[in-house]
Write a protein that binds this DNA or RNA. Sequence first.
DNA 1: GGATAAGCGAGACGGTACGTCCCGTCTTCCT
DNA 2: AGGAAGACGGGACGTACCGTCTCGCTTATCC
Lengths: 194, 194, 194, 194
Amino acid sequence: MNNLNTNMTHAGRPRDEAAKSAIMTATMTLLKDFKFANLTIERIAKEAGVGKATIYRWWGSKENLLLETFLDTADDHVVFNQEAPLLDDFKQVIVELTVVLDSALGRALITAILEDRDLLDQFHQRFFEPRRQQASQLLRRGIDDGLIKADINIDVVLDMLFGDVYMNVFFYGKALDTASIDVILTSFMKGIMI
Amino acid sequence: MNNLNTNMTHAGRPRDEAAKSAIMTATMTLLKDFKFANLTIERIAKEAGVGKATIYRWWGSKENLLLETFLDTADDHVVFNQEAPLLDDFKQVIVELTVVLDSALGRALITAILEDRDLLDQFHQRFFEPRRQQASQLLRRGIDDGLIKADINIDVVLDMLFGDVYMNVFFYGKALDTASIDVILTSFMKGIMI
Amino acid sequence: MNNLNTNMTHAGRPRDEAAKSAIMTATMTLLKDFKFANLTIERIAKEAGVGKATIYRWWGSKENLLLETFLDTADDHVVFNQEAPLLDDFKQVIVELTVVLDSALGRALITAILEDRDLLDQFHQRFFEPRRQQASQLLRRGIDDGLIKADINIDVVLDMLFGDVYMNVFFYGKALDTASIDVILTSFMKGIMI
Amino acid sequence: MNNLNTNMTHAGRPRDEAAKSAIMTATMTLLKDFKFANLTIERIAKEAGVGKATIYRWWGSKENLLLETFLDTADDHVVFNQEAPLLDDFKQVIVELTVVLDSALGRALITAILEDRDLLDQFHQRFFEPRRQQASQLLRRGIDDGLIKADINIDVVLDMLFGDVYMNVFFYGKALDTASIDVILTSFMKGIMI
DNA sequence: GGATAAGCGAGACGGTACGTCCCGTCTTCCT
DNA sequence: AGGAAGACGGGACGTACCGTCTCGCTTATCC
């Protein structure tokens, strides 16, 4: 199996994990001062105290580096609790999603994604879809429990909810505060609850 | 006033309108082959048969050129009819919005906007807000006419609707077809109609 | 004719002669500290206060730059007087040749020539052959004047003379002083004079 | 004494002679396709199927590797017979010298020598001087035997002869054929023989 | 015969330089 | 004064090698 090979040792000097994390840290640091288009591999390498080739060796492009760095910090967040009450669970996830997206890293990633189909696919597969599946399940359980109208189109309904979050972060350039999230969720629920 | 000067004649040779439109045309043409980050002033100048300085003289930056080119082609579209039935009017606007955004020009503009606060403000002021105002008025009239629930939060509700459009275009990378728009609008209306 | 076009003005900004001479000066300066293999375009550009592209624009390679710089400073020297007595004329040319070759510029050029057939051809055509022709004429005149044996092979004889100069400069790493040149010329003449 | 240690056994794995000769072979092979400046340690290592460190361990630099490789193949050649007639002995040595120098290895070595004083010294000590001493002895014996003029300056005379060989190989880029060598030697002898 | 030492191929490391592309500015001549 | 052409100083690209350094492994001597 391939998975077994993943941990196999290779000939030659093994990669330097300290360099890897220095590069990711530098990427995050520099994104506070530079927009993605002005973030250069050369600057990252310098900031990380690393040769350019080391970055190209492991990520191949600025875009891949960005995605990995994002997932590395974001993957533990934006997770549905599955046991909290439906509304609370959604609320917490939206708050976390807002925080993760409305960061230098998040904004840069979205920028990159809009210009790069491959990156978009990677992002969907590794970040977006898993969370969408969970939200979907949650709504289905709400329907089973008789809390939510049975005739809603789950996909459309979720796109509206999360689309709203994205719009606020990216189109109005503002993160949502807790109060706004309450307003949004209330409007949202009003339309779908029994 | 500045506006008065706009039509004033100056000493020296006047601006060459042919060059202006050649530049905009070249911009649109090249965006079919290059993403915004790879679209260079030098390439545009060459494609348009124009000196680089001419572009810098009139637009100052790639971003401004992009916005002007977008508005030049998009400004006549995405306009509410105001006389058609509410649902039809929304539907037509969403179709046009989808078409305009899901183009090389539209996608490039959004990309640029996400990285450029000034450009975002310009885009809001000159494209987004006027249309949002119209949609807002439309909903208010619907409320007055007793078609739509009086207790909705108009801003939130519009963000959900348009946010959904944006999500589909940018996050799923697909333009909405007519059938999908019907589904979205139906879901949307179900939540807000009396 | 092509020659006429050479002086024709072109569209666009003309090349900056100050940059040209700054680059050549920098090349000569840096060759005092670096051997040719360690002389980098980047260092020359920095020393000359010039962009790398300017160097590549006009010379295309380090080798070409070197040759032009050499010819620029060496072309006025190593010229036969044609009126001085035969021996004096040869002597003066050998002194000048020694000086020109035993310089940072000269040594670097020879190094480059040994690795680069095209450069060798250029060097022959633009520096070596004209001088060889003159030396050849001089010997022929010496034969006509009854000063030099008529049965010598001029080519072989000249190669021996100049080969000796080259050997001393490059193989023994020492420039010839006036006394040595006297010794060489005496030996040389002894073999060919009547 | 140090010399005694040369054959002493050490702890640890002994040097791999197969690797040594693979490296030298690779050096010679690659010099057919690459000039010395473009011959890289990395390429040699790959061609020889060897780690880079092995090369640095034993030679320390590209220049040293080159010299050792040259001596390894050239040291048996260019040797005066000492018993053949004077002219034949010189002739044979010049032929062999020409062959050895006009090879990828020989040309590369001269290139390297011109840029590297240490290498020049090594080359003189280990290749050039021994042969020059022999040529010198030969001429002295010729003088003793009354074959050669007693008043020649042996050093100058030899530099002229060998300088000519070098000039032809390096400056005209052509090896000498047997006929040319005859011409040269005839001219040479005419000047020095009684 | 187990410990120690050095050599080996592989290949990652921090760097330097490559030759190219583009930046935004400038300098020429022409309209 | 605008415009096309194109050179300018500068910065970054992605690649190739530098000489050094870990790895796991092999092959020797030493105790």
